[in-house]
Nucleic acid binder design. Sequence first.
DNA 1: AGAAAAATCCCCCTTTCGGGGTATGGATTC
DNA 2: GAATCCATACCCCGAAAGGGGGATTTTTCT
Lengths: 207, 207
Amino acid sequence: MITVAIVEDDQDIRESLALLINGTPNFNCVGTYNSVEKGVKGIMKEQPDVVLMDIGLPGMSGIEGIKILKEKEPEIDILVLTIQSDDRIVFDALCAGACGYLVKDTPPAQLLEAIQESHEGGAPMSTRIARLVVESFQVTPQTNLTNRETEVLTHLCKGKSYKMIADDLCISEETVRRHIKNIYRKLEVHSKSEAVAKAFKEKLVKL
Amino acid sequence: MITVAIVEDDQDIRESLALLINGTPNFNCVGTYNSVEKGVKGIMKEQPDVVLMDIGLPGMSGIEGIKILKEKEPEIDILVLTIQSDDRIVFDALCAGACGYLVKDTPPAQLLEAIQESHEGGAPMSTRIARLVVESFQVTPQTNLTNRETEVLTHLCKGKSYKMIADDLCISEETVRRHIKNIYRKLEVHSKSEAVAKAFKEKLVKL
DNA sequence: AGAAAAATCCCCCTTTCGGGGTATGGATTC
DNA sequence: GAATCCATACCCCGAAAGGGGGATTTTTCT
């Protein structure tokens, strides 16, 4: 038996989800909430196995709700179910602790499967979302850094000083300085920490 | 009709995969290869829609194969099918350009579904793999940094100088220095770039 | 209420960085 | 054969960072 809670502001959707869940053997809806605030409170009390969470609600956003719930009840699996599919929102939701992400046109059978999968330690995602997530790993080193410069940047990203890099690469510290000057110019940054930050954010180096 | 190629060193597995695919309407196996080297060559010629790629082959590894193929034929979807499921290998494969990742105990029906899904722009993953991938987004601040220190670290990770951080937080530069001293002690680092590197690697901050 | 932790501020001093020039040999390209 | 890019190396100098102290106030926890 899998217990499910629903956070969703649209009454029609909320009720049909509850009907679907309660109408399926081994699924039981133990709470429906029309706001994140009520949801958080109720879910802490009911301790469902899985939460279906909408994102774009009036009041507190679903993302915030995920953060709070994950903070207080890390064992509960939170599955996002929403119309929104902006890249930013998808990643925010996952970073906040969602275990999966479905868009709202998911057919009932698949929705039930996804709930089951969440509860079994999976991470169900709609087709497009899954591809988005996977592609986020793929590196596009779209800079014109030379090989040597990339090498130096990699060392910077390990927190090395000019002197250490010079020793590692067996070149003079002055040359390291020169490479770094060029890196800064190309990345349009003005300090080591900015360069490291940019390198990580744009996946310019692989560690 | 979806055309598929298989790279797999075990003859039994290779042949039964080919049989499965050719025995299914709308699926057509256009090449089977027992090594990555042969696979790359053949796949560039045959231009299949989807490649089933093993990882642990003798000779060139599947990861390398993915990199090369994605470099030359970015349109072809590469679906990893392997027994290996080390975290490191999963992420390496996805970073190299795989569009999905299945472990070898996947039942035939699901395998066919996954091929279809790959071709439709999805990213099929086995249950455990999907969770692994999703969890990689989640921040685990298992450090004893205080709120303020985390805040300062976040600014460091944007490449800010002491002075800029002081202005942003409306505190004296000396206080910023003090926080940073404490951060360095707790993270066991000795420079901004090291701190930023560690913060990114351990996902201590969210940007 | 009292203790502990966190956040704030100040001083000293040395090392490292970052920006400015300049130069030379080798490889590649045109 | 000239032009360009890359990697190497050096100088100067001021600003920023980092390590060592110490001190006060505010918050938090018990």
